[in-house]
Amino acid sequence: MPPTSTAEAVRTATMNDVPGVARVLGRAFANDPLPRWLFPDDDTRMARTVRLSAVVAGFGHIPRADASVVETGGVIRGAALWEPPEGGPEDASFLLRALPHLVPLIGLSRIPDLVRYFGELAHSRPEEPHWYLALLGTDPVARGTGVGSRLLRAGLARADADGLPVYLETMNSANLGYYERFDFRVVRVLNDARYPSTYCLLRGSSA
């Protein structure tokens, strides 16, 4: 039975949370278009998605205090990875730390494709200062309990306090209605046969 009434408040993730964050994000996204593109093998995709989530969260967002979690009964059930207006983990120092882990995980031959894909998405980022929601995932057993909405609202409140817009990307069209309920709108759709179809969404500032 899914957890319902014991969800705790949103808190900032610590390095001790990396395994739990990776597990949640791996379970949340293993069957989404991007992991399917990166990891075509059904038998290993879940484990590889968990490992990729650990690299991204553990080397990038969590050390910068740009990750938040919600627990249920002491178990992390949802996680959000954010990038603040002044920049985040997608920089040279992150790549230097992460590359030794990404190459064996993704494969050296796939790295150029991944770089080109994210380079193409960078063209859709707002030029003005903004908060970027890199990942928001909920453990499947906790879906429908409000964990994801709690994480999203906490991040949006922070952006509203700054008077800044929020930008995100999703590769799953089923997520569009959810984000539209929080006043996001699609500003670009990347339809390129080389990459997963990607929807770029923006929520304007409250200022």
Rank of each mutant, 00 (worst) to 15 (best):
V75N: 11
E90R: 11
G26T: 11
L108M: 14
S197I: 14
T12K: 09
V166K: 03
L52M: 05
Y179S: 08
V189A: 07
D66N: 13
N31L: 07
T49R: 08
T138P: 02
Y117H: 04
V21G: 02
R97F: 04
G107M: 11
N172Q: 13
V56T: 12
L121C: 14
A161H: 10
A157T: 14
A207P: 11
P84L: 11
A79E: 02
L105T: 06
H101K: 12
G144A: 12
P129W: 00
G107C: 10
S197R: 15
Y179A: 03
G60N: 02
A122V: 00
F118P: 08
A9P: 04
R51Y: 05
V50N: 00
G88C: 04
V187G: 03
V50S: 03
T4H: 04
V69D: 04
V75T: 15
V10A: 09
A80K: 01
F94Y: 13
V75D: 10
D41F: 04
M171E: 15
V24P: 02
P126A: 08
S205V: 02
V187M: 07
L99G: 09
H101A: 15
D41V: 10
F39M: 08
P85W: 06
G87Q: 12
E83T: 15
R97I: 06
G73E: 13
D162E: 08
R143H: 11
S206W: 02
P104S: 04
E8Q: 15
L121D: 08
G155K: 03
D42I: 09
R143W: 08
R153L: 14
A79N: 07
R48H: 12
L121F: 04
R116I: 10
E169N: 14
V69P: 08
